[in-house]
Amino acid sequence: MTDTKVDLSRYHNVLSRKHQVIRLLWSIVWAVFVRPLPRSVGSGWKRFLLRLFGARIHATAVVYSSAKVYYPANLKMNAYSCLASEVDCYNVDWIEIGANSTVSQGAYLCTASHDITNPLNPLITAPIVIKDQAWIAADAFVGMGVTIGQGAVVGACAAVFKDVEPWTVVGGNPAQFIKKRIIKE
């Protein structure tokens, strides 16, 4: 054990003033012009606003009104992808959601943390990639640097800290392999 102490009085936010101003404006725009809308109403309007703030979002992607997107410029949503009700997309780093993939209600996508080996706890980030045809079920947590493979399913309330293989089902905390995902015709 060391005598090193954590002293957060010297912590420095590495995000630029420009980034902070854009975040403030984005938060106001989403709160005023989107949050009051019912669930999936106004998809075109929501896509327009997300694009206005830098998101790369396909014309068929759906974002529910209660979803939270931290920084639109770090978001890419492909065809028929969905961020459902109460999803928290904390995309300090890049998040890509593949075609025909769904992030269900209450899920948390987290691309940032802090370096706990450094006494100043500096911010660290890594992208999240959700491949095509994947499903992140309700209240799941996906951590920074994780890739969810094509066709994979992350079970409800799972906590994912490592990559998930394609066409598998994982669940639990930490998430573990449950079975292969087989699509019946």
Results as ranks from 00 to 15, higher is better:
Asp7Phe: 07
Asp7Thr: 04
Asp7Gln: 07
Asp7Ala: 09
Leu8Trp: 00
Leu8Thr: 00
Leu8Ile: 02
Ser9Ile: 01
Ser9Asn: 14
Ser9Phe: 02
Ser9Arg: 10
Ser9Lys: 09
Arg10Ala: 13
Arg10Met: 03
Tyr11Ile: 00
His12Ile: 14
His12Arg: 15
Asn13Arg: 11
Asn13Gly: 08
Val14Pro: 02
Val14Phe: 01
Leu15Gly: 02
Ser16Tyr: 06
Lys18Ser: 12
Lys18Thr: 08
Lys18Phe: 03
Lys18Trp: 04
Lys18His: 08
His19Tyr: 14
His19Asp: 15
Gln20Gly: 00
Gln20Phe: 01
Val21Asn: 05
Val21Tyr: 12
Val21Ala: 14
Ile22Gly: 06
Ile22Asp: 11
Ile22Lys: 15
Arg23Cys: 11
Arg23Ala: 11
Arg23Phe: 04
Leu24Gln: 13
Leu25Asp: 05
Leu25Lys: 04
Leu25Ile: 11
Trp26Pro: 01
Trp26Ser: 10
Ser27Gln: 14
Ser27Leu: 10
Ser27Asp: 14
Ile28Trp: 12
Ile28Gln: 10
Val29Arg: 01
Val29Thr: 12
Trp30Met: 07
Trp30Asn: 07
Ala31Met: 08
Ala31Cys: 08
Ala31Phe: 00
Val32Ser: 04
Val32Thr: 11
Val32Phe: 07
Val32Met: 11
Phe33Ser: 12
Phe33Leu: 15
Val34Ala: 06
Val34Tyr: 00
Arg35Phe: 02
Arg35Ile: 08
Pro36Val: 03
Pro36His: 02
Leu37Val: 03
Leu37Glu: 03
Leu37Asp: 05
Pro38Asn: 06
Arg39Gln: 09
Arg39Ala: 15
Arg39Asp: 14
Arg39Tyr: 06
Ser40Tyr: 11
Ser40Ala: 15
Gly42Leu: 10
Gly42Pro: 01
Gly42Thr: 00
Gly42Phe: 04
Ser43Pro: 00
Ser43Glu: 10
Ser43Val: 08
Gly44Tyr: 06
Gly44Asp: 05
Trp45Gly: 09
Trp45Pro: 01
Trp45Thr: 09
Lys46Tyr: 04
Lys46Asn: 03
Lys46Pro: 01
Arg47Ser: 05
Leu49Glu: 02
Leu49Asn: 01
Leu49Val: 02
Leu50Phe: 08
Leu52Pro: 00
Leu52Ser: 07
Phe53Pro: 04
Phe53Arg: 00
Phe53Trp: 02
Gly54Pro: 14
Gly54Gln: 10
Ala55Thr: 08
Ala55Arg: 05
Ala55Asp: 12
Ile57Arg: 03
Ile57Trp: 03
His58Arg: 00
His58Phe: 04
His58Tyr: 04
His58Val: 01
Ala59Glu: 13
Ala59Phe: 11
Ala59Asp: 15
Ala59Met: 10
Ala61Ser: 12
Ala61Val: 03
Ala61Leu: 09
Val62Arg: 13
Val63Phe: 07
Val63Gly: 06
Tyr64Lys: 04
Tyr64Cys: 12
Ser65Val: 06
